[in-house]
Simulated assay, not measured.
Amino acid sequence: MITAQTQVDHYYEMLVEKNSQYEGIFYVGVKTTGVFCRPTCPAKKPLKKNCEFFDDAQEALLAAYRPCKRCKPLSAPSYLTEDVQRLVDAVEANPERKWTDKDFSSLAIHPNTARRQFKKYFGMTFIEYSRSRRLGLAFKHIRQGEPLIDAQLEAGFDSGNGFRDAFAKIMGDLPSNSKEKTILYSSWLETKLGAMLAISDHARLYLLEFVDRRGLETEIMVLRKRLNASIIPQQTSIIQQLAAELTEYFNGQRTTFTIPLAMIGSPFQQQVWQQLQQMKAGETYSYKQLAQAIGNEKACRAVANANGKNQLSILIPCHRVINSDGTPAAMAVV
Rank of each mutant, 00 (worst) to 15 (best):
V91Y: 02
P42M: 11
K98F: 07
P46R: 03
A76Q: 10
E82N: 06
P46N: 04
R86P: 00
E52W: 00
P67S: 09
R97V: 09
L47K: 15
K69N: 14
K44G: 10
N50S: 13
P46Q: 05
K49L: 05
K72H: 14
R97L: 10
F54D: 01
A57D: 00
C71I: 07
C68H: 06
C71W: 01
S75F: 08
V88R: 05
P42R: 08
R97P: 02
D55K: 11
V91A: 12
D83F: 04
R86K: 14
K48P: 01
L61T: 08
F53D: 01
K72F: 09
A90D: 11
R66P: 01
C51K: 03
W99F: 07
F53Q: 01
Y65N: 04
K44N: 12
A76K: 13
K98Y: 06
N94K: 11
K72E: 15
L74A: 04
K45M: 09
V84A: 13
K72Y: 06
F53R: 02
P73I: 03
E92A: 11
R86H: 03
A64W: 10
K69H: 14
P73C: 07
A64P: 00
A63G: 01
P77C: 05
D83H: 11
W99C: 01
V84M: 10
L80P: 10
P95K: 05
K69A: 15
C41H: 03
D56Y: 12
D56L: 06
L47A: 14
E52N: 09
R70E: 15
D89Y: 06
K69Q: 15
Y65A: 04
N94M: 08
R70K: 14
P73N: 07
P42S: 08
Y79H: 07
E52D: 12
C51V: 01
A57P: 00
S75Y: 10
L47S: 12
P95Q: 08
R70N: 14
W99M: 01
V91I: 15
V88H: 13
D56R: 11
R86D: 00
P42Q: 08
R66S: 15
V84H: 13
E92V: 10
A90K: 02
P67M: 02
F54E: 02
Q58W: 07
E52H: 11
A57N: 04
S75P: 02
N94H: 11
N94S: 13
A43E: 15
R86C: 11
E59D: 12
R97H: 12
D89G: 08
K49M: 02
D55E: 06
K72C: 09
P95R: 07
T81D: 10
R66M: 14
Q58G: 03
L87G: 02
L62Q: 00
L74W: 08
L61P: 00
A43T: 15
P73Y: 02
N94A: 13
L80R: 05
A57H: 08
A60N: 04
A57Y: 06
C41W: 04
L61C: 15
K72I: 12
